[in-house]
Design a protein around this nucleic acid. Structure first.
Lengths: 132, 132
DNA sequence: CGGCGATATAGACAAATGTCAATATGTGGT
DNA sequence: ACCACATATTGACATTTGTCTATATCGCCG
């Protein structure tokens, strides 16, 4: 399964409370962790934000190595992680590979957590510049 | 500093675009990654959700080992990670340690990402239920 | 004050992770 | 068909991570 991606938060299967279990499905926990683990590296955070902040919303792989200051194979490896986590989509155009963010995995993952009111602070979300 | 925590999203220092840099502060990327890395393990996801789903919103450390099926030192280690990431707060009461979720780090981290409209599917703020 | 129960720390160890240099694969141009 | 360039894969390596057992520390209660 190299191309698992997607299916980050099963939505259902919420309360599997039990003696040896927990409040969350084991597979759900793994999916959640997979997405967050992909974001658990500074380089990948930079890459994702870099692409997201780009003018066209997508970036060529060739433009990613220089900003993070790592070798081409390393960046390729990181991008693969992001793709497999469902955080970005890869598209080959000509001999270049383009990456663009995909929102589903991230919003599903964070949504799965903040679904629990104990994990979401109520009002005007966090760092929202629109509050003014 | 072992007890860094908090300060997950510097709010400012947004666009440090540069030749060897990126769109994001190096320290900010590390902070973001720290929070997400803490969530990048299935056991810690389970622990956080377990506590968040508890009746009182807090749980004694002694009640955490059994649901995840790991040894006491291992659970203690995971909880330390969550505390250092600023995702839960620890309080000693009597001879028991109680943990409760704290929303600041998570919402700041996710907010920092979804601040970029390319990373959020909803129009305005992130995951804000007050939009209705 | 001595002991007991709860939690944290230390040490050990296998597995996973991040990185690079070297190489393979793929894609278009000549 | 060949070559040049862009990207991915492989293999190697040091570092980090998750887990355990054993031990230390902390906090009550007799």
């Amino acid at each position: 399964m190299t191309t698992a991606e997607a299916t980050p938060a099963p939505t259902a299967a919420c309360c599997t409370v039990g003696p040896g279990g927990g409040v969350v499905d084991d597979e759900a926990a793994h999916q959640l962790a997979k997405v967050f683990k992909a974001l658990g590296d500074p380089t990948r955070v930079k890459l994702l934000l870099l692409i997201a902040a780009s003018e066209s919303g997508e970036m060529c792989a060739c433009d990613l190595t220089e900003p993070v200051g790592l070798s081409q194979p390393t960046v390729s490896h990181h991008m693969k992680q992001l793709v497999e986590a469902g955080l970005v989509a890869r598209e080959q155009r000509g001999k270049w590979a383009y990456y663009r963010p995909t929102t589903a995995a991230l919003s599903a993952a964070t949504g799965f957590l903040t679904q629990d009111e104990r994990l979401s602070d109520s009002p005007a979300a966090t760092v929202n510049p629109h509050s003014i």
